[in-house]
């Protein structure tokens, strides 16, 4: 028996054909079976007694060569299903001081790690996808008069209909009131970015409890210089929820900047006319940053290197 095959059988990285060969070998004799059991146990012991891996990002880089047809069927690689018991009321008012008689309310918060999306199933049947680095604040269990959450960053909401309990998303200064619908919210107040795109149903944008705008499906509304502007939405921007990063006619500079913020790594590049070249393409986010960079280097315009010295960690780009 090939040593490498046996260890790859144990780690689950063999093709079905090679697996059968190893299984036949294991079942051929008591001695072989014992060898397998010992190796198997050794593998588990060593795995669980080693230091934790440094980052979740590493997990994304696990090779996907053992993937079967299921992979094509299911797009949930990076999505993680969080079921939060009783996600309902949570009105977060920055200026509101809690009354003395009430114990302080500590909201639950969930943040999608860099390079990952989180898919959450809420108690009311609604689904929320959180984009990389974004946070959703929810209420403690037991407190529910209405369904309300606060979003920091980007999230896609598929809200279960419930006319009696409107769903409220607080995003920056504004709130979005919903009855049952699908929409995407981007809110980065520190960067002055605020946008909501509606796919179906209807939503109302509220400010200080008052309705200021009603949005119709297929449109998005952005906050620019304190004014709300509506425009038709561009579907490709919202594919992240299915684990896809899509670029159409984007410059290398834009792509580097987006990858940098998406995967939370610094990408350093020299000024070059190459930065204005445009690219189009779609990537599975789960394939990881390095896969995307590898593909982008196919036309030999640049090379990249992972720099990891002293306290500095970044990706260095060199143009050819």
């Amino acid at each position: 028996m090939d040593e490498k095959k046996l260890s790859r059988y144990i780690t689950g990285d063999l093709s079905p054909k090679d697996r059968n060969e190893v299984v036949k070998w294991i079942n051929a004799s008591e001695k072989n079976l014992n060898e397998y059991k010992a190796r198997r146990r050794l593998h588990d012991i060593l795995l669980w007694n080693s230091a934790p891996a440094p980052s979740a990002g590493e997990a994304r880089k696990i090779r996907k060569d053992s993937l079967g047809k299921r992979m094509l069927r299911r797009f949930s690689f990076a999505a993680i299903a969080v079921s939060i018991a009783f996600l309902s009321i949570f009105m977060y008012h920055a200026g509101q001081k809690s009354e003395i008689s009430n114990p302080p309310v500590f909201p639950r918060s969930i943040t999608a790690p860099a390079g990952h999306q989180l898919k959450m199933l809420l108690e009311d049947g609604s689904t929320v996808w959180l984009n990389s680095g974004s946070t959703l604040l929810t209420a403690e269990p037991r407190q529910r008069k209405e369904r309300a959450v606060e979003l920091l960053g980007e999230g896609y909401f598929k809200v279960a209909p419930d006319a009696k309990r409107p769903f409220l998303v607080k995003a920056g200064k504004l709130e979005i009131q919903v009855l049952g619908t699908e929409f995407n919210v981007i809110s980065y107040p520190d960067q002055g970015i605020w946008e909501t795109a509606l796919f179906s149903g209807s939503i109302a944008i509220m400010e200080k409890g008052e309705k200021i705008l009603r949005l119709s499906p297929g449109n998005k509304v952005s906050l620019v210089d304190n004014r709300l502007l509506t425009a038709p939405l561009d579907e490709e921007k919202y594919l992240w929820k299915d684990g896809i990063l899509s670029f159409t006619g984007r410059t290398l500079r834009e792509i580097f900047n987006e990858l940098s913020s998406y995967f939370n790594v610094e990408i350093r590049y020299p000024e070059s006319t190459n930065l204005d070249k445009t690219y189009s393409g779609k990537f599975w986010i789960s394939e990881g940053l390095y896969h995307i960079l590898d593909v982008l280097t196919y036309d030999n315009r640049f090379t990249y290197a992972k720099i990891n010295k002293d306290d500095e960690q970044y990706i260095r780009i060199r143009f050819n």
Binding site: I10, G12, D44, L47, P52, S66, R70, S76, F77
Partner: peptide
Amino acid sequence: YANYYSKALLFVKSYTNDVS
């Protein structure tokens, strides 16, 4: 999530042989 995802995935994948 950040500390144990990777380890947990290696463990489970070694038994399921199916990453997703």
